[in-house]
Design a protein around this nucleic acid. Structure first.
Lengths: 345, 345
DNA sequence: AATAGAACCGGTAACGTTACCGGAACCGTT
DNA sequence: AACGGTTCCGGTAACGTTACCGGTTCTATT
């Protein structure tokens, strides 16, 4: 009663062969009804659980998905919840590893999971990552791999993301409609896709209204509150300072807000502010910060579904690029003109 | 070159036995230097990675720790980061499963990981859990198990937690010192240890100052913003309403804050508020909410260390109950009297 | 020159499971 | 009575690895 029971134990006690037990257990055809019942009964009694290690070794698959994420912030946690839900239902266990936005950790994690522990990967790449060889190794091992949220053109893999460009566009257009003239953007790290896409949307909106992007108003900075704070300080100290700021994350928006408040400027009168993600926190601040909402939970679910498709449907799905729509939520931080007919939550 | 190479492949190419390759690979003594070098060289060239499944099956351990948490909120994410760090360094991979505060999911997750996938568990119990048989099963399988953060006396297992009672005491004493007379507490779910411990601290502080706990001011409610909002509304509608509220989480504090603002009451003048966790968000709100800070990252590290000890040191460690100290951070929400010599961040 | 011990290596079994093949027993048909 | 087909079951090999035992060869000692 010490070690967990195996089919061998059951076979011995029932005086049948292990083959028979094995077959009985998984409803194979070639087995007598009574035998099957006996096996089932005993396995219940012994509380038998098949050894997944042995199973995996034998059939060369683990029914486990490796999920690699840069961190576990609100957005990614929510997405993981979505992945979890779909995966569990499909009979997969998920293994979450966080790279802490570190390129090195990402490599270590990938390699570790690759050692016959998972059947494939669902990945959101670290902001530090500029080289993708460790991910290509996954594909060389012909394992399915899906990227989500932070996708990249440098990796030929199916992906799910939101329409970052549209998000950037919505945010910027809204600021323009509110009468802001000099709109700055705090973009993220330069090599990050989502960063550039949101920036692209920003530029498109300006163009639509015949406004020229000003180089000094486009700031690349790390994805983080403190950097955004510093960057905003610089912006506000310019001779011709911006009258609105669009940050590509809410973390950054908060950093910007702190700098704005410190400077004694008022939102939305003196300066407008729009963030991205619509994390719960932004609705609690004073003023509430407008932000582009993304369907994180749905995105997670879509990623997992796409993974499972890729898994089964063994064709080439590397072209797939599923895109979900974001939606701007307007709050006080950018609402100068009382509107009647615009999006307002 | 299709399937990953095995020691068998190496053995064949080098014309030695698989035993020799195996020994060479893990620096066993009985092997010639040249042979070892040849093996090493070839395994490098083929990019050989040992199959961890086979290894685990053979030596009956997976070098994986199962971590079960109720969710992935800020606190737990931070703790997991701590666990991760220590575990990785000790050569363990961690598998995170979230139960979503659901008793059923907790059971499913436990069972799944138990099927020979992990060497042991690090657990924070769901708020829904009142029966602990699924966790006892872990112990029956004589697997090491450590509980953290949300420990419970119903489980004889080593644990790491913070001194919740002291945290509750600090918060309450501070409110008393600030001159608040009718101090309410939003406690969490009744069956949750951390909830009761913080309540206990609250009572102790009242007692120290010869104040009587009033039943109407002790509210049990779910660990969540919306419930806290509703509970606070009720509190504020009492004939003799409280002049301060201590909530045992920041989520709840936020709910309370919303209700207070809606009612048109001012903090800290009309009503004082103290939360628990010191999540980054509370410092950003207006007013900043005082909160009891807990060393989440350290707590995660301690849990992992304790796990590894339990693992190696096969003695009975079930009595261990490591306790870390929390520390109240005072902000505007509870600061009526300008203080010179009290804790202030 | 005989012998004992290193030094090195190979074969086998085992971890727990399933896939595959072959065989025994039974039945019904010709 | 012989044949063919079900129905049910057991044996063997394999997944990739290591533990254990035993066997060569070589060197050094007597």
């Amino acid at each position: 009663m010490n070690k967990p029971p195996t089919i061998k134990d059951i076979a011995r006690q029932l005086n049948v062969s292990i083959s028979t037990v094995s077959r009985a257990m998984r409803n194979a055809p070639d087995v007598n009804v009574e035998t099957r019942q006996a096996v089932m009964a005993l396995s219940q009694k012994l509380n038998y659980q098949p050894n997944r290690l042995a199973l995996s070794l034998r059939q060369r698959q683990t029914h486990t998905i490796g999920v690699i994420v840069p961190n576990l912030d609100y957005m990614l946690s929510t997405m993981i919840k979505g992945i979890d839900e779909v995966a569990l239902e499909a009979g997969y266990t998920v293994m979450v590893c966080q790279s802490n936005e570190s390129f090195g950790r990402e490599i270590v994690n990938t390699r570790r999971l690759l050692d016959s522990l998972v059947d494939g990967f669902i990945i959101s790449v670290s902001s530090e990552t500029k080289v993708f060889d460790h991910f290509r190794k996954i594909q060389e091992n012909q394992m399915p791999m899906v990227v989500f949220d932070r996708t990249t053109p440098f990796l030929k893999a199916p992906g799910v993301r939101i329409d970052n460009e549209d998000g950037g566009f919505q945010a910027t257009e809204h600021l323009i409609e509110q009468g802001y003239k000099r709109i700055a953007i705090l973009a993220g790290p330069k090599n990050l896709g989502i960063s550039n896409q949101r920036l692209e949307g920003y530029c498109k909106a300006l163009k639509k209204y015949k406004m020229k992007p000003v180089n000094d108003l486009i700031i690349y900075c790390d994805f983080n509150q403190d950097y955004a704070y510093l960057a905003t300080q610089e912006l506000l100290n310019m001779k011709k300072r911006p009258d609105a700021i669009f940050t590509i994350s809410d973390r950054m928006a908060i950093g910007a807000m702190l700098a704005i408040k410190e400077k004694g400027l008022r939102m939305p009168q003196d300066i407008g502010l729009v963030g991205f993600n619509n994390e719960p926190v932004v609705s609690l601040l004073t003023p509430g910060i407008s932000s582009v909402d993304q369907p994180a939970f749905e995105l997670g679910k879509a990623a997992a579904k796409l993974f499972i498709e890729t898994m089964h449907n063994n064709g080439d799905m590397s072209g797939v690029d599923e895109v979900l729509k974001p939606k701007l939520i307007v709050r006080e931080s950018s609402l100068r003109i009382p509107i009647k007919n615009t999006r307002k939550k």
